[in-house]
Amino acid sequence: MTENSSSQTADRYRKIAAAFTERVERVPADGWDSPSPCEGWVARDIIRHIVGTTEFFLGAPAQGAPSVDEDPVGAWKSARDTILGALADPAIAGKEVESPAGTRTIEEMIAIFGVGDLLIHTWDLSRATGQDDTLDADEVNRLFTFMQPMDEMMRQGGAFGLRVEVPEDADPQTRLIAFTGRTP
């Protein structure tokens, strides 16, 4: 990992996190129990998952983070700040960890899995709470290009449902969302 790649990952994460934060801050108090496009989840569960990925990436939960049940906005912001802090610290960002993709640095894990996960769940939260579901076009293209060769492998772990068929001329975001097993 180079400092440049870490800063690029931090920039990408920061951009997607800003869009996610906008959606999180707009969820009305009674919206946290709204059904999500993720089967069996409500809006609050999306936050719970994203906060949980912080622990997955770093091996420990965000310190002093509020409970997702009591303060989903605060829990998300604490997780976001923890990830950005890790990316800003070369000793943490460069630490090697075991992942589903083999041994990777924390920065690589966030670049490979964290940014994309946050992007897709921005769409989920937007849909669950009736907000604009438009995603960053560059990240949509990057993620879709990255995921396509792993189609079969992705579905084996149960993290993604079966691909939803969409017209050939569907826009890239619709194709990505459908590829992840969600109905656009």
Rank of each mutant, 00 (worst) to 15 (best):
I177T: 06
F144V: 08
V97N: 09
A170M: 04
A159C: 00
V42Q: 10
E168Q: 14
E22P: 05
V166M: 02
P167W: 09
I92H: 00
P90G: 06
L135R: 05
A128Q: 14
R155K: 07
F57G: 12
A159Y: 01
V51P: 00
C38P: 13
P37H: 02
D133R: 09
R127A: 11
D11V: 03
I120C: 09
I50N: 13
P184Y: 12
V51T: 06
R182L: 00
A19Q: 15
P28K: 10
S7I: 12
A10K: 15
L176H: 10
I16N: 15
T174A: 10
L84R: 13
G31D: 08
R127M: 10
R26T: 14
A62H: 07
G59Q: 05
S99N: 03
G52C: 04
P61M: 15
H49F: 07
Q156H: 07
P35D: 08
P66M: 10
E152Q: 15
G181M: 04
P37M: 00
A93L: 01
T2W: 01
T53Y: 13
L176R: 10
I47N: 08
T174I: 09
E22Q: 13
G59T: 03
A170K: 05
G52Q: 03
Y13I: 04
L118V: 02
E107T: 12
A65G: 05
D117A: 02
A75T: 05
D89N: 08
A93I: 02
D117N: 08
R175V: 02
S67H: 12
F56N: 15
T103E: 14
L87F: 01
Q63Y: 12
R163S: 03
R44G: 01
A137D: 09
T145D: 14
A86Q: 12
P37Q: 01
T122H: 11
E107W: 07
I50M: 14
E55W: 03
P37R: 03
G181H: 05
E70W: 02
R163M: 06
P172L: 01
A10T: 08
N141V: 12
S126L: 08
S99Q: 03
M109H: 04
G102E: 11
P35N: 08
F113N: 07
G116I: 01
V42Y: 04
E98G: 13
E139R: 09
L176F: 10
I106T: 14
M147H: 02
G85C: 07
V140T: 03
W123K: 01
W76M: 04
G94K: 01
L119P: 09
P66Q: 11
I50T: 12
F113P: 05
V68S: 04
T134R: 14
A18H: 00
G31I: 05
D30K: 03
D133G: 11
T53G: 10
A91Y: 11
R127I: 09
C38F: 11
K15D: 15
I120L: 12
E39M: 13
G31Y: 06
D69H: 10
G31H: 07
I106F: 06
R14A: 14
S34N: 15
A19Y: 11
L176K: 11
